[in-house]
Design a protein around this nucleic acid. Structure first.
Lengths: 182, 182
DNA sequence: GGAAATCTACTCGGATACCGCGTGTCCGAGTTATGGTGG
DNA sequence: CCACCATAACTCGGACACGCGGTATCCGAGTAGATTTCC
């Protein structure tokens, strides 16, 4: 399976649309974002709770609630999102095979299990290189590259779509008496 | 799950013991290696067929057969082993979410799906960094680092163990007539 | 003494079982804004 | 006019179903060396 889950992909795509949201307006809901991206709303909601626990977003509960970036897009790295969604799962989990070597019988000598396994060390180094690459890109960076390849009206189109969708929410409309319904 | 399977770990540990095997002697069998490492023999055999398909080892079939490195340990990188065992599986498989965006309706415009996804590009870069790190280490490098942390007699102990084990193989001893059994 | 038969120990590859985990769904609980209702 | 209530739209989090793929086991087929047997 791939190292980076599709959950991370969903989250990143959605987070890009949270950039440049006006501060006062009602924030987009996770359902709005899910429909916008064509992904499962329930699943995305679960992903966003993890983003919230990692302090990448702040959420407002209740009607007219929603979600917004916790800090500037330039201060959220791709690695932040990966760790928030997938946890800091290991690139490679060492089974400590060196201790099981038949040369040692049942009791491996101390020098055999001291320090980190030489093979493991290589994997750790590769993992660090990969994570450094992920940490080097922020949400703002990616958004800039997306904008460079898209027509200028994309930003306003997205903002319009989200605000339309927010305006369509109608909390607290009790079911009208039947005689007054149209 | 982790990106690098435990199969790679098994293979690497075993390959280290194939370094410095004398050329003329009977090569170690995969079962020998499995016992030496305390690992499932059947599973390891399956792994070694993949190493053979990747031309990292050469195998000799039949009795007194076995396995040996196909080239110098300095010319086999960790990445070679990873690719041979796990295949070149993707770090991240892009679902092309950008094409599903509700802004586009059913027909995403050409500019939206042209080139590689900006998010995917970041992942590809991280993957290349990781693979470069894996490619930078050879079997010989690792063996050198293992030897540096172990007593000097480790090498001869391992060679002794393997040649003892090879000597114990007794192909072609037919079951003796009952009257001659002890 | 040499050829054939026999037996053992390999590699190779397919079939299959097990199981953890990523993906996705469903639902109840708690929270909050809105609109209607009654005093 | 104001307090209250019902309702809708959220977030949060647990429970659970499903399927894929890594790990592991088993077994038959083919191959090759060693030993015995037989001519």
């Amino acid at each position: 399976m791939s190292y980076i889950s599709t959950g991370v992909e969903y989250a990143l795509h959605c987070l890009l649309f949270l950039i440049d949201q006006p501060d006062g307006a009602t924030p987009p809901s996770t359902r709005d974002l899910a429909v916008l991206q064509g992904v499962s709303a329930d699943y995305l909601a679960k992903l966003f709770t993890r983003l919230q626990q990692a302090d990448l977003i702040v959420s407002r509960e209740g009607a007219m609630g929603g979600v917004r970036l916790a800090r500037a897009a330039a201060d959220i790295s791709v690695l932040d999102v990966v760790v928030a969604i997938d946890g800091d799962r290991a690139f490679f989990d060492c089974q400590e095979i060196r201790g099981r070597c038949a040369l040692f019988g049942d009791a491996p000598p101390a020098w055999a299990t001291r320090g980190t396994c030489s093979i493991h060390a290589v994997m750790i180094e590769a993992e660090r290189k990969a994570k450094a690459a992920l940490a080097a890109h922020s949400l703002a960076d990616i958004a800039g590259r997306v904008a460079a390849n898209a027509p200028v009206e994309l930003g306003t189109m997205a903002a319009q779509w989200l605000s339309d969708r927010a305006a369509r929410r109608k909390p607290g409309r009790p079911t009208r008496p039947l005689d007054k319904q149209e």
